[in-house]
Simulated assay, not measured.
Amino acid sequence: MEENYLNYPKHFIAVDCIIFGFDGENLKILLVQRNFEPKKGEWSLMGGFIDDKESSDQAANRVLNTLTGLENIYLEQLNTYTEIDREPTARIMSISYYALINIQDNIQINEEYNTKWFDLQDRPNLIFDHNDMVKDAILRLRRRASTRPIGFELLPEKFTMKDLQNLYEAIFDEKYDKRNFTSKINGMDILIKTEEKDMTSSKKGSFLYRFDEVKYQKKIGEGFTFKI
């Protein structure tokens, strides 16, 4: 049977990761400036080839861990890109993933790579078909964030209601009425209001909240639907 495979062409398979973050005001994307040809000096997504003894999920997690040192990151497979001429050096097919990380915890990016966080709206042009990957990831993020509480992956454990509103405004690129947004979120009953306050925004301060994963899962079992 193995001899039959020898009659078929061999291709490379890679993973590329669209890494999103949030700085409290803007949605961010982590990009890498390439230090090798082709396209040396240009900006790209972080990626790598899939090893012989790993799945694409394992490869994507390895790539993210190598870059950020983080584990258990929210990671979702996005799409597969197989255009014949997508890369000039060889026939390389790529499986894309998008990841959500909390960048306000001062994560340490591997200095081996020349990386930079860009505002999503002001990102540079990317190599190959990476622009298409980012566009696809934005659409998927918006679909998921509208029906699942994945946005909390981008926030610190404790956050203000204003932080949460800023996040969803950044994800969907639209403004919400403060009163209506607060009422809608409170009506879901999936947050824990702490006794702590963020005193940086005003003299009175703003209460800090936490996402209640246990209550959310219980409500899902009872037929609850998360919807922004």
Rank of each mutant, 00 (worst) to 15 (best):
D16Y: 07
N114I: 11
S96A: 09
Q104C: 13
R86Q: 13
G48V: 02
G21T: 02
E54N: 09
M93Y: 01
Q108K: 12
E71Y: 06
D52S: 15
Y113C: 14
Q104L: 14
E83C: 15
V63E: 00
P88M: 08
G48A: 00
R34V: 10
R91D: 15
D85E: 11
L100F: 06
L75W: 05
V15L: 08
I107L: 10
A99K: 07
C17A: 10
K40C: 12
L64I: 00
L70P: 08
T66G: 03
T80F: 02
N72Q: 05
E112D: 14
Y97D: 01
L67Q: 01
I19A: 08
N79V: 00
V32L: 14
N79R: 04
N72K: 06
T80S: 09
K28E: 05
R91F: 10
Q108L: 12
F36G: 00
I103Y: 13
N72G: 03
Q58N: 07
I103L: 12
A99G: 03
D57W: 04
V15G: 07
R34C: 15
R86Y: 13
I92H: 11
I18A: 03
Q77L: 10
L45T: 04
K40Q: 15
L100P: 03
R86F: 09
Q33S: 10
I50R: 06
Q58A: 04
K116A: 06
N110F: 11
I101K: 04
Q108M: 09
E111A: 13
S96Q: 07
L30R: 02
D85V: 10
V63G: 01
D16Q: 07
I109Y: 10
Q58P: 02
N110K: 04
I29D: 05
N26V: 00
S44C: 10
W43L: 01
D52M: 11
D85M: 08
L27M: 13
M93P: 11
S55T: 00
R62W: 02
Y74F: 15
I109G: 04
L70W: 04
F36Y: 14
A60Y: 04
I73T: 01
Y98L: 00
V63M: 05
G69I: 09
P88G: 12
I84P: 03
I84S: 15
L64E: 01
I92L: 13
Q58I: 05
V63L: 00
R86C: 09
A59S: 07
